[in-house]
Design a protein around this nucleic acid. Structure first.
Lengths: 120, 120
DNA sequence: CTTTCATATGAGCAACTGTTCATATATATA
DNA sequence: TATATATATGAACAGTTGCTCATATGAAAG
């Protein structure tokens, strides 16, 4: 962030200096906030959300997911790589087939919180 | 979705027909899943996450937020409109100034769940 | 070794996103 | 009314994203 802290753009900055200080202390690091946004970005796509919901129920191979969602194998595989990179899913090879499943219960918790907000 | 349900692309689809049926039942509606992804999309940007974290601490006017984050008033205002449209923040006018605050505690809960996953 | 099947991956493209810049709106004050 | 301040907003542009298509990789079977 540029050093503009002492160049107020409105009179309220100094009126609320205590609040500004408190916020600055409470604000997580730039890196943490970036990672957090990156995480939510992964959840911010219909296809990926669908894949995660499918894996809620059972581990599943790539082509079954594609079949279920009516999408191409390539599209699903690309998105599974995104989910894998974010450590939201894990996989298990069995012969020619690769089975994907949810990495842990955080995924359920996050989706659940979002669902609460959407369906209320 | 195209009607490809009876054109298996791999042998596992029919081996796991029961699972496919169960998943199809458990899967929320297309519209709900779309809304869910749209919600997470809003959280999927550093600037917006920062704004929300700032509002965690206190209601704040546009220019104070811009000041705090070292960004232009315009950029912050644009993002506040996005957050407003998603009903994640509310605002209160006081003379020339507009104060923004979190709309409800869902926002905290969702960010908190994400933070758990990021900081573990 | 060759073929087949399931999956992964790179290039290319259209659609979307976040910022900047210029300007408009709204409120208060002289 | 004219001016100043705080915020909102539209256009434009660069950067990103998700899909398709073609092709590559990996594993099992002939």
């Amino acid at each position: 962030m540029p050093d503009q802290k002492n160049v107020p753009q409105c009179e309220f900055l100094f009126v609320h200096q205590e609040i500004v200080d408190r916020v600055n202390q409470a604000l997580p690091s730039e890196e943490t906030l970036f990672d957090l946004a990156e995480l939510f970005k992964v959840f911010g796509d219909s296809t990926r959300v669908k894949i995660l919901y499918v894996l809620f129920e059972a581990e599943m191979c790539v082509c079954d997911i594609a079949q279920l969602l009516g999408m191409t194998q390539s599209a699903i595989s690309h998105q599974l790589q995104v989910l894998k990179k974010s450590k939201l899913v894990k996989y298990r090879r069995e012969g020619k087939t690769v089975f994907y499943s949810l990495a842990d219960d955080h995924v359920r918790a996050i989706l659940g919180q979002g669902m609460d907000h959407v369906t209320e």
